[in-house]
Amino acid sequence: MIQHVMPLAASGLKIDWTRMPTYNTIMSVAAGAGLLLVVALGRQLLAPGRITTSDGWALAFGALGFTLVTTGLHMTLTWPLAGQGFPFDNIIFGEPALAFGVFLLAASFYLWKRGAELLGDDRVAFTARVASPLSLFVFGMGLACFGIAAAGWKYTLFAAPPEEPISGEFAKWPILEASFMSGLYVLVGIGALLFPFALRRPRSWMSPVIGVVWGLAGIAFLIFGGLNYFTHIGLIVNTM
């Protein structure tokens, strides 16, 4: 999850990109798409009708999970963003992406092998029982999201340098981007903290709240990640 962190710097910033490979662009797009698909599947499970097939969901979750696990695992284990003094970035982006990727891969595997079990009339209660043990990890990552958000606000992280297109226009007000990105982590964290309790009462007020916060965060991560393909390329061109 997934905008890069760079320091505010004077004009003429130069970055040795061979020492700091950055690929949180695709991580952001995949995380956003994953959140939106989780919300969409949840709505289908709670809808009165039946899910006609689970194959498409298994393929989608598998593709997104593979993307997030490979990039998140590499960032978590190798700390590529520490090359020029930003080791905390690997925690902020790599570990949440790895965890979410594992969730998606687990869901993909289950839907591929036993997705037909979700087609019955008792699918809501059945899904809640199956997901309940994993919900403890989801809850823990919700706490992590709040920790990341608090760090973003306290240390004014997520600020882009002036050399980055679009985002760099707000370099004089680093609190703006810090608040935006920290706010997204708060949204994800709210849904994750409610998730275990929503499984106990799937049709309570908590399920719509989770759908709203994860849906808003998913849209933002998806659009922001797509935009970053331009802003990150521009930053590389301007700082080589």
Rank of each mutant, 00 (worst) to 15 (best):
2 I>G: 15
4 H>K: 13
5 V>E: 12
7 P>K: 00
8 L>C: 08
8 L>M: 10
15 I>R: 02
17 W>H: 04
18 T>Q: 13
21 P>Q: 06
25 T>Y: 13
25 T>D: 14
25 T>M: 14
28 S>Q: 12
33 A>S: 08
35 L>H: 00
35 L>I: 00
36 L>I: 01
36 L>H: 01
36 L>C: 00
37 L>E: 06
37 L>V: 05
42 G>T: 03
43 R>Y: 06
47 A>S: 09
51 I>P: 07
55 D>Q: 14
55 D>F: 15
57 W>F: 12
60 A>I: 11
61 F>W: 05
64 L>P: 00
64 L>R: 01
64 L>N: 00
65 G>Q: 01
67 T>S: 04
67 T>A: 10
68 L>D: 03
69 V>A: 06
70 T>K: 10
71 T>W: 12
72 G>R: 08
72 G>I: 05
73 L>V: 05
74 H>S: 15
74 H>A: 15
78 T>P: 07
79 W>E: 14
82 A>Y: 07
86 F>G: 14
89 D>R: 05
93 F>I: 13
94 G>S: 10
97 A>F: 07
97 A>N: 05
98 L>W: 06
102 V>H: 07
104 L>F: 04
105 L>I: 07
106 A>L: 13
108 S>L: 06
108 S>I: 05
113 K>Q: 12
116 A>W: 12
116 A>T: 11
127 T>R: 03
131 A>D: 06
132 S>A: 15
134 L>P: 00
135 S>N: 02
136 L>Q: 12
137 F>R: 07
138 V>W: 02
139 F>W: 09
139 F>C: 08
143 L>A: 08
144 A>C: 07
144 A>N: 06
150 A>H: 09
157 L>W: 15
160 A>N: 15
161 P>I: 11
167 S>G: 09
168 G>P: 02
174 P>H: 04
174 P>V: 02
174 P>F: 01
175 I>L: 12
178 A>C: 04
180 F>T: 14
183 G>S: 04
185 Y>T: 02
189 G>P: 01
190 I>C: 10
190 I>A: 06
190 I>Y: 05
191 G>S: 07
195 F>G: 01
196 P>S: 00
199 L>G: 01
205 W>Q: 07
206 M>L: 10
209 V>H: 00
211 G>A: 03
212 V>L: 14
212 V>I: 14
214 W>N: 11
216 L>M: 15
220 A>C: 04
224 F>A: 15
228 N>P: 09
233 I>G: 07
236 I>L: 09
238 N>R: 05
